[in-house]
Simulated assay, not measured.
Amino acid sequence: MALRTFIARRFMSSSSFSSHLGAAVSNLSAAGSAASDKPAPVPSDTLFVSGLNKRTTSEKLHEAFAKFGEVVHAKIVTDRNTGFSKGFGFVKYATLEDASKGIEGMDAKFLDGWVIFAEYARPRPPFGQTGTQDPYAPRR
Rank of each mutant, 00 (worst) to 15 (best):
L111C: 07
A108D: 09
G113L: 02
A74W: 13
F90W: 04
L47T: 13
P41S: 03
F84D: 15
V91T: 11
P125Y: 03
H20L: 01
M12L: 14
F84E: 15
L21P: 03
G131C: 03
A34N: 12
Y120N: 00
R124E: 02
A30Y: 09
K75N: 10
K92T: 13
H20D: 01
E59Q: 14
S19P: 01
N81D: 12
L61F: 03
P125G: 03
P123V: 04
P135Q: 01
G131P: 05
A31W: 10
K92Y: 01
E104P: 00
N81A: 14
K60A: 14
P43I: 00
H62W: 12
R122D: 02
E97H: 13
K101N: 11
G69R: 05
R124P: 01
S58F: 08
T5R: 14
P126R: 14
T132R: 05
K54P: 10
G102V: 05
F88D: 02
P126Y: 05
Q133N: 11
F84V: 15
A2P: 09
S19T: 07
W114P: 00
I76S: 07
K101W: 00
F84Y: 15
T46W: 00
P41W: 02
M106L: 06
L28T: 05
L21I: 00
S50Q: 10
L111Q: 08
V72I: 15
K67Y: 02
I116C: 01
V25R: 09
G22A: 10
F88P: 04
T78D: 04
A99M: 10
D134E: 01
P39H: 05
E59P: 06
